[in-house]
Design a protein around this nucleic acid. Structure first.
Lengths: 349, 349
DNA sequence: CGATAAAATGTAAACGTTTACATCAGCCAG
DNA sequence: CTGGCTGATGTAAACGTTTACATTTTATCG
């Protein structure tokens, strides 16, 4: 391993000058700077990150802590984060961990001293445990976490508004009995979407009916089961709002298996607008979330904190959603899938 | 920031003993060990990663360098890698970079000194440029890279065999004119899949016909365009093998838009078996790749290198694929999607 | 030409660990 | 009682940087 000492010796200068040359300090003459850099590249010198961050107290790395890595969602978040991180000269240390107490704590601890800041996504996050694991002055951006009272920046998806808009849309189309398949218990997004659903009904002067608020856990199976249950009801709903697309797709399967027409007999709406939503039949109406942009915002926020840690005021931000109307709730069909708003996917493999 | 010195002072020992206690060395008495650890947890001591890796020359981090982060594929790879990395006590530093020469080189350099080893995925990788950027003794696992002659472990998907199996299946079902929509030019996977396609035709004593080998670039649009072009031919193919699912789905749209029946008039097969493949209509026959397992293998291979860097022999490994037959090539339809082999997805949001 | 300011370079301390080596106490055999 | 061994602890040097400070060289100006 070639160190800066080797470079300095080869260039006939002291390590200090060599270091300055590598860091483009103005305290070094132009010609020596050029000479040193030339020598450095010739010797394939790469600075030792650990040594550097030991003294500068900067790792130029941001930690990304996710509850899981399963599915399109996280891939997109990471993409957004990595994109802006790279632009700012930062790396991403990603890790997933089940966020039930000790696991999260361990993950946080193992990241300390390796990262300058953290993007923490944890819809089940209770500020409880890590109030001491995370020193308050450590830069953290909470992504889609329940309000915790912790002094951290926080970024959330407009779950409430998105759900409200979806249900309102269903109501406006004439639906009087709108059911909901809820997200996982204890999940912040799930709770917010439920809240939006209820508000939309209330504002339309429709009764809240507990029997059509079915539990779910964001999985396709739970959507399937919930839809089955709904079909058993004496008074069937005419529309179903599933708290995410996976469950909506599960519900779609259930209705198809039961011979129920969608959208003629029952309309369905989902949430997230995952790429697949365009391709199921009928195409799924959903609430679109620009996830990659969300990741970009989170990273940008964190980077700005890192750049100027002066501002102590934690800020909250809500990321807007848009309703994408497709056939599953009665919109006219489009002949080609290309007219949908989500850009087509590109896979390298 | 509380350092090991603070802990040592508080526990009334020297830093050496404190360090030994934290690292479970046998050279420290049991009672002092307990006392020191107790003090350490009470003070919320976390070792400074940079300082530690400066002296131990181990970062306990593996780098993951991907060509992009778009789509399900990378999400799954990362998941597999992170899973095994965590099990082995390692972190993942992920980064995406367009792998055209200087970009890749820069990414590699910026990772040096931060990671103990590297999983490098780059289907357009030419061993050329980085023969010197990557010192030979640095542990690297190449994932889906073209054979480079570099002395590195290498893991590839059974592209050739998978494509061969798919085309053979089409031929066995009676298709005589099988077209291919190729992957991106210069892409290793694409080349291998083309090779498998040709071999299957040859072995079935069917002629190779250049006019049905259409170019593509793995995007949905290119699949759409290619299918359009195929429909213009005087002698239409009766089956189309698309080098990935995205293009297959694009082709599906094109055929639907042209009023061509799938699979009755033209059968279609894809590659990758992305989750969406089950949901398009008709459900897409595809070559399934267990991507997360691929990532796990890659990480496991790298970790074993890191554990015992004795073995200098670079090893190659091919990851098997399985053909998943669905309706798009004429298989009987299944009533519920749950019977398909891909497990249902779980999204947290 | 000398004084002085400015610019360029060198010296050495620091960052937080680990670890080779030194030390020291206690113990046992001769 | 002495010498050597064992086990526990301390001392200090390293790891590869950056940077405050000291020193030297160069430029400027009276």
């Amino acid at each position: 391993m070639v160190t800066i000492k080797d470079v300095a010796r080869a260039a006939g200068v002291s390590v200090a000058t060599a270091s300055r040359a590598m860091n483009d300090s103005r305290l070094v003459a132009e010609d020596t700077r050029a000479r040193i850099r030339e020598v450095a590249t010739r010797m394939w010198y790469t600075p030792h990150g650990a040594a550097r961050s030991l003294i500068t107290r900067r790792t130029h790395t941001i930690g990304v802590l996710l509850p899981d890595l399963y599915g399109e969602f996280f891939s997109e978040v990471i993409r957004g984060i990595d994109l802006t991180a790279q632009r700012g000269g930062y790396h991403c240390l990603v890790s997933s961990a089940r966020h039930d107490g000790p696991q999260l704590e361990a993950a946080l601890r193992s990241m300390r001293g390796r990262v300058d800041g953290l993007v923490l996504m944890s819809p089940e996050f209770t500020g409880e445990l890590s109030r001491r694991t995370l020193p308050g002055e450590f830069p953290v951006v909470l992504l889609n976490c329940p309000p915790s009272g912790l002094p951290f920046d926080s970024l959330t998806v407009a779950n409430y508004e998105g759900a409200y808009g979806m249900v309102r849309h269903l109501v406006v189309r004439g639906h009087r009995r709108v059911a909901i398949i809820q997200g996982a218990a204890g999940n912040f997004d799930a709770a917010e979407r439920l809240r939006g659903y209820r508000a939309a009904l209330r504002d339309a002067h429709l009764p809240e009916r507990p029997e059509v608020e079915l539990p779910g856990d964001f999985t396709e199976e739970s959507g399937y089961a919930a839809a089955r249950a709904l079909l058993q009801l004496a008074e069937r709903p005419t529309a179903i709002f599933a708290a995410n697309d996976c469950m909506a797709i599960g519900a779609l399967s259930a209705l198809r298996d039961s011979g129920v027409m969608v959208p003629e007999t029952v309309a369905i709406g989902g949430f997230d607008d995952i790429p697949m939503a365009r391709y199921v039949v009928p195409a799924l109406t959903s609430v679109h979330v620009d996830i990659s942009a969300l990741g970009e915002r989170a990273a940008a926020r964190l980077l700005s904190r890192l750049g100027a840690p002066a501002d102590p005021e934690p800020r909250s931000e809500t990321h807007p959603t848009t309703l994408v109307v497709r056939r599953s709730c009665g919109a006219p069909d489009r002949s080609s899938s290309f007219s949908a708003r989500t850009p087509p996917r590109r896979n390298v493999v």
